[in-house]
Nucleic acid binder design. Structure first.
Length: 801
RNA sequence: GCCCGGGUGGCGAAAUGGUAAACGUUGCUGACUUAAAAUCAGCUGCCAGAAAUGGCUUGUGGGUUCGAUUCCCACCCUGGGCACCA
């Protein structure tokens, strides 16, 4: 044995080469029988390369995919690159290399790192979002969205990152800061392309009910969509009071303002109205108020605040009364004042609220500060008071009845339309032409792709225009409709475009002439298992679902949802407990681990670290366990191969139990306990010094998805020609699963006092008799009257007195 | 503030109503060795005890049960999502 040690470097290279040469993992165009589509969230190829945290999810899908193949499934398990977008572009700018060159280099590095780990990807299906044959179809989808009225130009103020110098979607913000660079985001009015994701709020929400996803991700998406049901209620303005009438021309009488509330039951307690500074009626009202100068100044100051200041609930609320303007609470009949305050958001609900200080904390704080009246309308028992004919009603009941009489039911969502254009170079050009006569004209589909031009200067301009705007040759084009000179749209698509449909492209990866062959699409979709980080819950996973739902409606996707099962991978932190980052100098490169202890050890270690979806710290000491496990297996195989060994009852039990447990645990992503079971099984094997050919063979099959290289090698040495990757997955033999003799505890009043060894099929009488003889049991029963005997077959026996 | 997780040995953890701590790591002891490494064997939750054994122990307090890490109630701590969203 000592002269034949386990040489991971030689063995792993040998099998990786063999798999590539033999096309072991090439997937058929169409599945022949049962299929499984096992997908990783594809990486963006950053300049830092992979650290050991990245492959954790990839190892999990690979283990799963390999087991499914052995169970007779045709498995689609592809990999690709999400290479457009800010991370790649910022890296390129910083290092003064063209993004295309930087990305190509990074992809080569990533791919080599992945291949060292022995993944069973079908590299024939490799895709890259910056490939014109890929983004041709990203642009094509945009045109389908445009035709359906879901893509539109807007001039509203949007989030602007002063450092990245581009507009951003709400999803790209983190606490009012740019998710990429951390800069405080400003509001900036500019021309934008928007996607009407809000039209799909309800479908995005109801679709969640059909998905067996982790609770946390479902909850995050629900929170993000932010549905709230309530009422819209109209408040009429009253004739202007005298001073107001003197200052302005015209009247407000007959004009009304709508408010949105989730508490229509508290309508009688509404003692004032509040409009947001940006409210549509504000300019009209401004000309009538007595304190015009004061109000105008307030509106101006609100517009100058950053989003963070505006939305900080902890800050004291400010506002100004619109003097001279009064409205009527038609429920209570009261005349109420109208205020403007920036705690009311312009873009949610109607941009105006009915203030009920008695039942809303924010209104209460505001009313206290400005000495506005507070009227309680719901009592301790949740019944209405001070509410006229509704007094005594239950609040829930009153919501409905008051809405019926004074307003109408409405639903609001927090979800905002998707700001879809970026003033940056490194993205898919939006396939639109602007013509003086015909306005916005989509590029005809047969002229796609609109190629991203090669440029010398790709740095952002900061002017609100993309760097593409400076390339006159490219911008100038002919209007597809009238043929006259026209200009190309110069904004590009955001990072998230290419990743919003890539699961479809893998199915027909190398077909430049067709979106996705519908027969193949039907055969492979949906993605059966999708694995990636939880940080994508409200970005990628919402966008991709949105596009997929639309593609489904248009008949290009056969399933309403793209991803059936979703598993989220927990982070691997550095040994110091912090995130792995070049900045902290705590990055562990998988290449080093592979060189030192081998890919199989890395794979087992990462799956064994703890529950898959949980964050764990890397531990250098911890790797030795999995490495020793492989070496012990190697030695046991050496000792067993060629021997004619008979297995003991314990070995047969252990191996059959392992079949059951490893099959179940791998299927449910409980990899850590699957490996623990295999370790226990090997411990039993080792007590016998060697095992039979059958048991070794079964063990190798079970371990193969986790440690494919060493298992291929042992498999080959056992004399099998076909690789382990296509070997049959074992099935447990029930005959060996029940041990003949078992040890159960004997309890007295619920405390363990002895252990007895019994035959599995022993009767209760036998067990009880044996248990009563135990010295320690006799002692603890001590002649007392046993009131009850609890016997759970093959678990325990308990005497109660 | 609202919503969703989680809290178990020195450390990563296992057990989802039935012997708490499997599996791995760390540490200690021993075998082998001139020695070390590797390997193998034993011990390793806390307290008392020479041992047998007894008591305690899954964030805290209560409850249900013959029996609770597991189910129920309240609280504390912690990670995450949303958040002046009316």
């Amino acid at each position: 044995m000592a002269d034949n040690p386990y040489n991971h470097i030689e063995i792993e290279k040998k099998w990786q080469k063999r798999w590539a040469e033999d096309g072991t993992f090439t997937t058929p165009d169409m599945p022949a029988g049962k299929k499984s589509y096992v997908l990783d969230m594809f990486p963006y190829p950053s300049g830092e390369g992979l650290h050991v945290g990245h492959p954790k999810g990839y190892i999990a899908t690979d283990v799963y995919a390999r087991m499914m193949r052995m169970q007779g499934y045709d498995v689609l398990h592809p990999m690709g690159w999400d290479a457009f977008g800010l991370p790649a572009e910022n890296y390129a700018i910083k290092n003064k290399i063209h993004p295309r060159i930087a990305v190509e280099k990074n992809i080569a590095r990533f791919k080599e790192q992945l291949q060292n780990i022995g993944f069973s990807y079908d590299w024939n299906r490799e895709i890259n979002t910056i490939d014109p044959e890929y983004y041709k179809w990203t642009q094509w989808i945009f045109l389908q969205l445009y035709k359906k009225g879901l893509a539109y130009e807007s001039f509203e103020p949007i989030n602007w990152c002063p450092s990245c110098q581009t507009g951003l979607a709400n999803e790209d913000l983190d606490q009012g800061k740019c998710e990429r660079c951390g800069s405080i985001v400003e509001k900036r009015p500019m021309r934008q392309w928007m996607l009407k994701i809000t039209d799909y709020a309800e479908q995005l929400l109801s679709g969640l009910e059909t998905l067996p996803w982790p609770k946390s991700i479902i909850e995050s998406q629900k929170n993000w969509i932010g549905k709230s049901e309530g009422a819209e209620i109209s408040f009429r303005f009253l004739p202007l009071t005298k001073p107001a009438r003197r200052t302005g021309g015209g009247e407000l009488e007959g004009v009304s303002v709508d408010v949105f509330t989730t508490r229509p039951d508290t309508l009688f307690g509404c003692t004032y109205l509040v409009l947001s500074p940006e409210h549509a009626l504000m300019q009209n009202i401004l000309s009538h108020v007595d304190n015009k100068v004061e109000v105008a100044a307030y509106i101006k100051s609100a517009s100058e605040k950053t989003e963070i200041d505006r939305t900080d609930a902890a800050k004291e609320k400010t506002g100004v009364e619109l003097r001279g303007v009064r409205a009527k609470n038609s429920a209570s009949g009261e005349e109420i004042p109208v205020w403007v305050a920036d705690y009311v958001l312009a873009d949610y609900g109607t941009g105006a609220v009915m203030a009920v200080p008695a039942h809303d904390d924010r209104d209460f704080a505001f009313a206290k500060k400005y000495e506005l009246p507070v009227v309680t309308v719901v009592n301790e028992e949740n019944k209405l008071i001070n509410s006229g004919e509704f007094n005594g009603l239950d609040a829930e009941d009153a919501k409905q009845k008051i809405t019926e009489k004074f307003g109408k039911t409405t639903t609001n969502y927090k979800l905002r339309d998707w700001v879809f254009s970026r003033q940056r170079y490194w993205g898919e050009p939006i396939p639109i032409v602007h013509c003086e006569e015909d306005g916005i004209v989509p590029v005809p589909e047969d002229q796609l792709p609109v190629l991203l031009p090669e440029v010398e200067h790709y740095e952002p301009t900061g002017t609100g225009e993309s760097p593409l705007a400076a390339i006159t040759d490219w911008v100038s084009t002919a209007c597809p409709k009238c043929g006259k000179p026209a200009k190309r749209e110069t904004n590009t698509m955001p990072q998230w475009a290419g990743s919003s449909w890539y699961s479809l492209r893998y199915i027909d990866a190398k077909n430049p002439d067709q979106f996705v062959d519908s027969e193949k699409e039907k055969a492979w979709m949906p993605v059966d298992v999708y694995v990636g980080g939880a940080e994508h819950a409200t970005r990628h996973l919402i966008y991709a679902r949105f596009w997929h739902i639309v593609l489904h409606e248009l008949g290009f996707a056969s399933t309403p949802e793209p991803f059936m099962r979703l598993e989220h991978v927990g982070l691997i932190l550095a040994e110091d407990g912090r995130k792995m980052s070049k900045r902290y100098g705590n990055v562990v490169n998988p290449d080093d681990i592979v060189a030192l202890v081998g890919a199989d050890t890395l794979r087992i270690y990462e799956m064994f670290m703890g529950p898959f979806n949980q964050s764990v710290s890397w531990s250098t000491a911890g790797i030795s366990g999995p490495r020793k496990f492989i070496e012990r297996l190697w030695r046991l195989a050496q000792a067993s191969i060629g021997q004619d060994h008979q297995d003991s009852e314990q070995v047969l039990y252990a191996i059959n139990k392992s079949i059951k447990k490893v099959s179940e645990d791998t299927a449910t992503f409980r990899f850590n306990t699957a490996i623990a079971t295999l370790m226990e099984c090997l411990n039993v094997f080792e007590r016998e010094k060697a095992v039979s050919k059958e048991s070794l063979e079964t063990f190798i099959r079970l371990l193969a998805p986790y440690a494919p290289h060493v298992c291929e090698e042992v498999w080959g040495r056992m004399g099998y020609a076909g690789g382990i990757s296509r070997a049959r997955w074992p099935v447990a033999d029930e005959r060996y699963l029940a041990e003949k003799t078992i040890v159960i505890p004997v309890q007295v009043n619920g405390k363990v006092r002895a252990e007895i060894s019994i035959a599995r099929d022993a009767s209760q009488e036998e067990v009880e008799a044996l248990a009563r003889q135990q010295e320690n049991v006799v002692k603890h029963v001590a002649g007392a009257q046993v009131k009850k005997v609890v016997y759970v077959p093959s678990k325990l026996i308990n005497f109660v007195w």
